[in-house]
């Protein structure tokens, strides 16, 4: 496992090579990218800044937690800082695991914890030339009021109680259930046939 705050372009393929293992039946890639609209305002780019030392430390702690919780060491997370253009990747998370359910759960855990705990900020740059610091986002990705910074403290939350991102909350994605049900519901007999070939 590895995590880093980087200044240059994130090479997702390199991260995939880094986590590759014949023991894994599933590999989940999450890539966060700079979006062209926020809160109805057209965005031209984003500048990420970090408290670098602490961001590296906190990110490493989150990766270690995920490795233990989901029983895989094939995890790589990179978060980029600096000025990013629309569509560029600000964060990439790659998780390899013998089974897809745990791989999805670990990936979700990593991004939600990152968003709550890692001291990184973004200065959004709008098409009209103005700039504004962006507030935190909710677990689901919706905007959240800026007035709830209290839960970011890892001291308040032990490693074993990661607050809202906990797996209990995501019962729907628990292994062995989400896969079968979802595939059956969308297009029975076809969806997921590739995945069924894996040992997941």
């Amino acid at each position: 496992m590895r995590s880093a705050i980087v200044d240059g372009v994130i090479d997702v393929n390199a991260l995939l090579r880094e986590t590759a293992s014949h023991a894994n039946g599933a590999t989940i890639v999450f890539v966060g990218t700079v979006r062209d609209v926020n809160d109805g305002r057209p965005v031209s780019g984003m500048e990420y800044t970090a408290y670098r030392g602490m961001a590296e430390r906190e990110l490493a702690a989150i990766v270690a937690e995920a490795a233990e919780r989901f029983a895989t060491s094939d995890i790589v997370v990179e978060h980029r800082i600096g000025v990013l253009a629309l569509g560029e990747a600000s964060v990439a998370i790659v998780v390899g695991h013998p089974h897809r359910g745990a791989a999805y759960d670990a990936s979700r855990y990593l991004i939600e914890q990152l968003k709550q705990r890692v001291p990184i900020w973004k200065l959004e740059q709008y098409l009209d030339g103005t700039r504004e610091w962006v507030g935190p986002t909710r677990a689901g990705g919706e905007e959240q009021g800026a007035g709830s910074p209290g839960r970011a403290g890892s001291e308040e939350r032990g490693a074993g109680s990661p607050g809202r991102a906990g797996s209990e909350e995501r019962g729907a994605t628990s292994p062995g259930r989400a896969g079968g049900e979802e595939q059956g519901a969308t297009s029975p007999g076809r969806a997921g046939s590739e995945e069924r070939g894996t040992p997941a």
Binding site: M54, S90, W121, P136
Partner: peptide, 22 residues
């Protein structure tokens, strides 16, 4: 750190705005 935490000489104290990575 908590508000009650004692500070030692040379400590680096950071005041952290709501984080917004990702």
């Amino acid at each position: 750190a908590k508000r009650s935490r004692a500070i030692a000489p040379g400590d680096e104290v950071a005041i952290i705005p709501p984080v917004a990575g990702g």
